[in-house]
Amino acid sequence: MTATTAQQQHQREASPEAQAEVLREHEPGEGGVRVVLAQIAPRLGDVPANLRRHLAIVEEAKRGGAHLVVFPELSLTGYFLKDLVPDVALREDAPELAALARAADGVDVLAGAVLESEDVRFHNAALYFSQGRLLHVHRKVYLPTYGLFDEQRYLAPGDRFRSFEAPFPAAAQRRAWQAGVLVCEDMWHLSAPALLARQGVELLLCPSSSPGRGVAHGEALGTARSYDAMTRNYAALTTSYLLYCNRVGYEDGINFWGGSRVVDPEGSVCAEAGDGEELLWHRLDLDAVRRVRLAYPLLRDERHDLVDVETDRLRDLRRTEQ
C-alpha cells in the first residue's frame, strides 16, 4: 500500500513534529478525494428551481471539504420530459451552465442536462465542470426506447465514450484521475465500460434516473438487483472506483429508487444511500486503485490487440457473407 510506504519513509526521515503532521493527514476521512453523491429528486421541467438546488448543494459540499459532487442523470431537468425536451434544453453557452461552472471552483461537479446542438439535436448529457469551466461532456450513447422508456423519440444519441482527466484541484493529489462517464442505459452495454477501461479510467461516474420496477417473485426491486450486479462487476472488472448516483422521487406516478453507491476497485460497496433524498459522502484513494491493480493485473493483461484483430475479422467475415 503506497500510502503506508510513503508514510513510513517520511517517518524515518522527518522530525517528531513532522511525523505527527503526517499521521493527522492520514486519519480516517482525511486525504484522497472526497466525493458527494447528491441523490436528489429534481423537479420535472423546472430548470431554474433545479439550478438553485444544485448551487446550494455544491456550496454545502464545498463547505464540507468535498472535491467532487455527482448529480443524477438529467438532474437539471427531470427525466420523463417528453415534449418538454426542447423547452428545457440548454446550449453549451447557456447562462445556467455558466453559473454551474462558476460554482465549480475548488470542487468539481458532474450534472445532467439536455444539451441542444446547432443543428437542433437534443442530447441527454452529463456535464463535468472543474476550475470554473465546462471540462468534459458525455452525451448518452444508449437511449432506451422500450418498456416505459421513449428516449429515442425525443433525443439524439451520443457517438463516443471518452475518458478525461479529472483534476480535483483542491484534493492535493499527486496527479489527476482518469475518469469516464456512463449515463444509466450506457451501463447495460458491455462495450461501454470496456471502452473506458481501455482508455485507462480509474473512476467510473454513473449518473442515473432509474425507475423502480419488478416486484414479482417476492424479491426486492428487480432494477435494484440489476444495478447491484452491474456496479459491483464493472468496478471489479475494470479495477476502478464506480460512483453510481441515482435519483429519487416520482414522476407521473413512476418512482425512482435511489440506492446511490460508491463501489471500490475490488467491487465492494463501501457506501450506499437509502431511498430518499441524501448527500452520500465518501473518500476515494488512488493508492487503493494501485493496490487492487497489483493484486489483479487485469488491465495489464487485457488483449486490446486481440479485440482489434477479431473486430476486423468479424467485419470482413460479414462483408464476404453479404
Partner: peptide, 24 residues
Amino acid sequence: DALSIDTAVVERIVVGFIREEVRK
C-alpha cells in the same frame, strides 16, 4: 409463486406515490 411480493417494498413505493402525487 410469481405473485408473491415483498410487502415492505411495495408499501414504501405506494405510500410515497400517494404522498408525492397528492402534494405535488
